[in-house]
Design a protein around this nucleic acid. Structure first.
Lengths: 114, 114
DNA sequence: TTGACATATATCAATATGAGTATATGTTTG
DNA sequence: CAAACATATACTCATATTGATATATGTCAA
């Protein structure tokens, strides 16, 4: 089997830095494809393709206006990622490091006592 | 160019569900490769390969003990992801939806006034 | 030392990617 | 209607992936 498609879920979709960049830009508000092309300095077909992936996982919505298509952010699918990563938050927090040290020290004292 | 290597960064590494599963298991504490093989019901070479990817992006550390290798979680590289996703937290919160409605209503009232 | 055990690496197949480029679809304007 | 514009799709290329399987490396035990 090959790697899972980028359109499988939000995890795969945002693994690509360009797509995160697009989401970051859309966070400031609706944008047309051409706007994004200029802001990203990327070929139009590439932008369209990235937008397609984002659309397929529900991270963006489109609205047609004349010959333009305006893309809008929809962060909802990111919640799953947020929830998963949040589980590990304590892992890198200074508070946790501190707790680790304290526990190690306590354990040391206990060992000494025996 | 092809898709970025899974070992490029944490974003790419955790796109694979098996690797997230491994991290979830390691969250409970150190595990040997064989432990993981049994818990994941996955072939040993596959587990070793996934662990290699996780090791390369710094998400796990190894410790040798006899013929076993004990893997330990290191959540630090997940902080980048957490920070990025956190930016979008308001996007899916009920509070934000509510604010959206209120703003739309205010705008409607304003338009009516003119 | 030989064999069992634990883990890592190599190879093959099937697949999807992302960039590049050309072109198709659809809309507006003159 | 034709031309310009905005966007999407199709195709090629080079590459890395995951699973399957075989095998290599390294450690312990009899």
């Amino acid at each position: 089997m090959a790697r899972a498609a980028t359109t499988t879920d939000a995890f795969n979709a945002i693994a690509e830095p360009r797509r995160r960049q697009i989401l970051d830009l859309l966070a400031d508000g609706e944008r047309s494809v051409n706007d994004l092309v200029e802001l990203l300095d990327l070929a139009q077909p590439h932008v369209s393709r990235h937008l397609r992936v984002l659309r397929e996982v529900g991270l963006v919505d489109v609205r047609e206006e004349g010959r333009q298509r305006l893309y809008r952010l929809n962060g909802a699918p990111l919640k799953v990622i947020h929830d998963w990563v949040k589980t590990y938050e304590q892992t890198w927090s200074a508070r946790f490091e501190l707790l680790d040290d304290v526990l190690a020290e306590l354990k040391g004292a206990e060992d000494d006592g025996q």
